[in-house]
Design a protein around this nucleic acid. Structure first.
Length: 581
RNA sequence: GCCCGAGUGGCGCAAUGGUAGCGCAACCGACCUGUAAUCGGUAGGCUAGCGGUUCGAAUCCGCUCUCGGGCUCCA
């Protein structure tokens, strides 16, 4: 209990420090640029930022200059003082600050807070530390453009990001986490481990899966298919292009236009590349009448879709223009919805646990301003989702108004090994498409009823999930996923034949085994296998060749010593089938 | 899309107006080695693309492409 109170006070303290650091930074910027216009300077995770409108662009060279001037102010230990002023007084004080004036106009109360330190005055509700000397550990990280109030129609300001903590040790720890994150960056590991590439010649945001990346993907996909079949799904496939009219019926042409690629002409008809798989599944559903007895129908597809994304938003595997959704559509009756959602949530969590994610954050997004269907139907579905969440006993938060126009949704984000969050599985109820396509089932009384449709993924997309997995495991995939599971390392050329025999035997067992045939020393081969993060290194020399054994080294550096090929097959086989290490 | 920054052999980097270098990888040869880099040699770049300034451009300027940090948006 006391610990919790301490924790809360600590959070408050560190937030004061961060907020104060942003004011000190603003003071420096003001001294450097007397004409600077100030935006906002809030506290964020691990630090702070401040937005400025400046006469010239900041460059990375400005960072150390601003940093050292901040240190001077901190050394002077200037007090932070606050006062309450009226709206009119505030307007007078900030007469030359258009962004502040805009903020003042939006404050509902007539009295507002002003904080000063040194020569800097800011509109601010506080709180701050009592004097600048309390800012013990900070570092400026980067500069970036940011629209005023996040609105791209408004001016672009210059933002400086900084980190700040209570102690130097915490700051250093944070900088280490950043460095560790850089080491795990899936874009870097993707190149080093020969997993995938992008090409200027092919176009941005288009992933090329190399053999090793494709192997990991195939293992995931095989597992995915098997798990779906276990849970009563059927696997389907649908084409990559369709006539534009299909997308007009679905509403995508009207409502999702900015993400669609231009139509192409095929025999005088316009076609577009699919941005989603749902219309295809609906067409298949509608090939005959469906009885209430055959619902729910669960159709899953690893469906590759293409969506136009603005050039500036592309990012490695996590934001691309062509990707494969691990999609499924559940067609069910209203009374089945809750059970179906429960099953989907349990399925999604099972998948996440299998891949080593133990922590998640679950968001329930409710009706946005623009929506299809009626308020009653939305409320009913939202309640159903909440009941399902309670049944699976998962903590969740409500994100009001963040649902898609066609229905409420549950998003699961994952916390990786470094504590960062990734968007993962999603479950969305859809009222729109069944209506637009007239998707029905024949009920007990032989009357056609609208079907309830659920879109869901349990991984998200193959690309994004793979990127997340790479960083989560830092490229050291557990044996069941590793593209090369065992590297056989002959000590001298005369051991090549035996190495090949071992490899053949392991491959016959389904193991992904290779021999390092290069004319290199054993140490070099071990180093390479180590850098490639291969789970098992099997060293073979005279001793092993004469006794049908292998010497097993793990990538942890641990030397397990000699064992028979059969003993190794058993050990590796069990680690792989249990999906451990 | 917008703001800022960057783009040099497969990869990592050097050369800031004066004939483009280094390491790793690759290739060839030698070595035959017991748990994270053996030695020697060879080859490879019209410096992302196009245009301009200059006697002379990797270097300065403009446009385009791609990448990175953000904003906005999303699987």
């Amino acid at each position: 209990m006391n610990k919790m109170v301490d924790q809360e006070q600590k959070i408050e303290k560190v937030e004061r420090i961060r907020h104060s650091a942003s004011h000190v930074m603003a003071e420096v910027v003001q001294s450097l640029f007397p004409d600077a216009k100030f935006g906002i300077g809030p506290v964020i995770d691990n630090g702070f930022y401040y937005d400025f409108d400046l006469p010239r662009s900041l460059t990375p060279d400005d960072i150390p200059i601003i940093e050292s001037k901040m240190a001077e102010i901190i050394a002077q230990n200037l007090p932070f003082t606050s006062e309450e002023v009226s709206r009119e007084e505030a307007k007078g004080t900030f007469a030359a600050q258009p962004y502040k004036l805009e903020l003042i106009d939006e404050i509902p109360e007539e009295q507002m807070g002003i904080y000063r330190q040194g020569s800097f005055i800011d509109l601010c509700r506080g709180p701050h530390v009592s004097s600048t000397g309390e800012i013990k550990a900070f570092k400026l990280l980067s500069i970036a453009g940011a629209y005023w109030r996040g609105d791209e129609k408004r001016p672009m300001l210059q933002r400086i990001y900084g980190a700040a903590f209570e102690t130097q040790g915490e700051l250093e720890h944070y900088m280490e986490v950043i460095a560790e994150a850089a080491k795990r960056d899936h874009r870097k590991l993707g190149q080093e481990l020969d997993l995938f590439s992008f090409h200027e010649e092919a176009g941005p945001g288009l992933v090329h899966w190399h053999p090793k990346g494709a192997t990991v993907r195939r293992v995931i996909e095989d597992f995915w298919v098997a798990e779906h079949i276990k849970r009563g799904y059927e696997i389907v496939n649908s084409p990559h292009i369709a006539k534009i009219d299909l997308w007009k019926t679905s509403g995508h042409w009207e409502l999702y236009r900015e993400n669609l690629y231009s139509p192409m002409d095929v025999d005088g008809q316009e076609y577009i590349i699919k941005p989603m798989n749902c219309p295809a599944h609906i067409l298949m559903y509608k090939t005959r009448l469906r009885s209430y007895r055959e619902l729910p129908i669960r159709w899953a597809e690893l469906g590759t879709v293409y969506r136009y994304e603005r050039s500036g938003v592309l990012h490695g595997l996590t934001r691309v223009r062509g990707f494969t959704q691990d999609d499924a559509h559940i067609f069910c009756r209203p009374d089945q919805l809750e059970d179906e959602v429960v099953d989907v949530l349990e399925f999604a969590i099972y998948m996440m646990r299998t891949f080593g994610f133990e922590e998640y954050k679950i968001m329930l997004s409710t009706r946005p301003e623009k929506y299809a269907g009626t308020i009653e139907i939305w409320e009913k579905a939202t309640e159903t989702l909440e009941r399902a969440l309670k049944r699976v006993d998962l903590a969740y938060e409500v994100d009001p108004g963040e649902g898609v126009f066609y229905g409420p949704k549950i998003d699961i984000s994952l916390r990786d090994a470094l504590g960062r969050t990734w968007q993962g599985p999603t479950t969305q109820v859809d009222f729109n498409l069944p209506q637009r396509f007239d998707v029905t089932y024949v009920d007990v009384d032989s009357v056609a009823q609208p079907v309830v449709m659920v879109h869901r993924t349990v991984l998200g997309s193959m690309e994004r999930f793979f990127g997340c997995l790479i960083e989560h495991y830092a490229g050291s995939f557990p044996a069941w996923l590793a593209p090369v599971q065992a590297m056989i390392i002959p000590i001298a050329d005369r051991h090549m034949d035996y190495a090949q025999e071992v490899a053949a035997e392991l491959r016959a067992d389904g193991l992904r085994a290779q021999v390092d045939m290069r004319a290199e020393r054993m140490n070099q081969k071990i180093r390479q296998a180590q850098l490639q993060k291969i789970p098992y290194m099997l060293i073979v020399g005279d001793n092993e060749a004469s006794s049908a054994e292998v010497s097993v080294r793990l990538r942890s550096g641990e030397d397990l010593g000699r064992q028979t090929i059969n003993a190794f097959r058993e050990m590796a086989g069990s680690a792989i089938s249990q999906k451990t290490t």
